[in-house]
């Protein structure tokens, strides 16, 4: 099943939003029901181990591009998330692994799968940022193709669309809030050249050159 939408973030820039969405910590904080979101080091994602790791980790939200750069999503890498999706009395917790298939500002593609007991899902998702027409904000166009299996599949048909819409809405509202609270991107985005010819921010932003802007 496919669903999509556009969410507009006010009073921000594509660079700022891109930076925010590059930060697993900010994404984790903004995703409703997400207990942790961590880079998967080895082949297998062991969720018990990851949970332990998450409890020991001391990561904080920041607006410091240096810090974000350290932990930013990387193309081709896998990330594990423990997500509880709450729909009334139905509250499955999904062990989810997502691969960043493509990360090329202003576009990111990811695919993943998750399971919870006898239920599971597979999804592929993409997101693109653009300046809004009034130039005052950023439009996030997103689309997701998801397949749901097992017990929740029958229920899925009915609830997935509105529930997904609600999760996305809450996610971006939180992102907007965090952007505002942290002042992400307020650090200049054009300082200091690096050895590979890309600025630090360029690297975080996944840009190949520091010249273009939308």
């Amino acid at each position: 099943m496919e669903f999509s939408g556009t969410f507009e973030l006010e009073d921000t820039t594509v660079d700022e939003v891109w930076l925010a969405l590059s930060d697993p910590v900010l994404v984790q904080e903004s995703l409703p029901g997400c207990t942790f979101l961590l880079h998967v080091e080895g082949e297998e994602a062991d969720f018990d181990e990851l949970a332990e790791q998450a409890s020991e980790l001391d990561r904080e939200l920041t607006n410091d591009p240096e810090v974000i750069a350290q932990r930013a999503f990387k193309e081709g890498e896998r990330y594990a998330a423990l997500m509880q999706v709450s729909v009334g009395p139905v509250n499955p917790t999904f062990e989810t692994v997502v691969t960043i298939d493509e990360r090329d500002r202003p576009r990111m593609d990811a695919s993943g799968e998750g399971s919870s007991g006898d239920s599971s899902f597979e999804m592929s998702s993409s997101m693109a940022l653009s300046e809004t027409d009034d130039g005052d904000g950023v439009a996030v166009e997103w689309e997701t193709q998801a397949d749901v299996f097992g017990k929740v599949a029958g229920m899925g048909q009915r609830v997935i669309n509105p529930v997904a819409n609600r999760i996305v809405k809450r996610f971006f509202s939180s992102v907007q809030e965090e952007l505002h609270d942290l002042g992400v991107g307020e650090v200049s985005t054009s300082d200091g050249d690096e050895s590979d010819g890309r600025s630090l921010v360029d690297r975080v932003l996944g840009r190949s050159k520091s010249t273009d802007s939308e």
Binding site: G88, P89, V90, G117, K151, M155
Partner: peptide, 23 residues
């Protein structure tokens, strides 16, 4: 714990019987 209030049960019990809900 995951706790649910049981009233008449006509929404909750079907969800529990189908395995979708396990309070």
């Amino acid at each position: 714990a995951e706790t649910e209030l049981l009233a008449g049960g006509h929404s909750l019990l079907p969800a529990m019987k189908s395995g979708l809900s396990s309070p």
